[in-house]
Write a protein that binds this DNA or RNA. Structure first.
Lengths: 128, 128
DNA sequence: GTAACACTTGAAGTTAACTCTAAGTCAAGA
DNA sequence: TCTTGACTTAGAGTTAACTTCAAGTGTTAC
């Protein structure tokens, strides 16, 4: 798979894909004789995983560490589990914060809905 | 209330408080005869609101716009409601993304706990 | 054969959101 | 009186995460 195809498939720019590879956020991709990237299915799985984690706000630095641990093999399973567990807990904390904010926004929006009605009534009065 | 007190109360640095005021993220704070900020209860409410919204990831730019609309009075109620509604919808979308990632992380962690070697370890063979 | 085009690299530039620095004012304490 | 320390401002610096640029290579279309 070419970078153009992968870029379209995951809606990530070619620049971002090259950047991710350069910093070790995805394992390095094989090149053909012309030096051009040829992504395998496995590469795509990594990209999809990383994209998902980044969408949820996991920092690049942490994900680089995860990829690094992964490439070191089974000896790092414990460390990987620890890393993922920490990130999961932080994710839950962020979601709880967001839930609070969501409720607050909903309250505010509801109040604005009620505030608009009196104004509309004012307008009606002045019309007749 | 002094900036030191407000800083401690909300766990925001003094620099951040001054920065927020400078860019219009909170309405401007009164100064005493010496030119030193004296925060009112009202100021604190704004700060608390902004902190909550920032924690949930609402962009500063959008919040500045909200504060601006607020200061223009009742004529902007519709616009404010629209702005908040858009932000709420985006917040929900982000939370849904995060929920998916959370489930995925939980799966992965569970697999590590069960000491089942993840499928991706197969991939490792090809690279070093 | 040459022009267009997709790709390569390393490095510089951008954006959001702070964070720090420098230079200065002012009130209180030894 | 002098010094300490909290505060002021404008502006420069930092960090994360891209994004763009410059210069060059290799493949395809006419």
């Amino acid at each position: 798979m070419t970078i153009t195809e992968v870029s379209k498939k995951f809606d990530l720019s070619q620049d971002t894909l090259r950047y991710y590879e350069r910093i070790g956020l995805i394992p390095s991709v094989n090149r053909n004789k012309g030096g051009i990237r040829d992504y395998t299915e496995e590469d795509c799985k990594w990209i999809e995983f990383i994209k998902c984690m980044r969408n949820a706000g996991l920092p690049i630095e942490v994900l680089i560490e995860y990829v690094g641990l992964f490439q070191q093999g089974d000896a790092t399973i414990d460390a990987r589990k620890k890393l993922l567990t920490e990130q999961r807990d932080q994710l839950i904390a962020r979601m709880e914060d967001m839930q609070k904010t969501l409720e607050r926004l909903n309250c505010k929006i509801e109040r604005y809905e009620q505030a608009i009605i009196p104004i509309e009534n004012e307008l009606k009065k002045s019309e007749d």
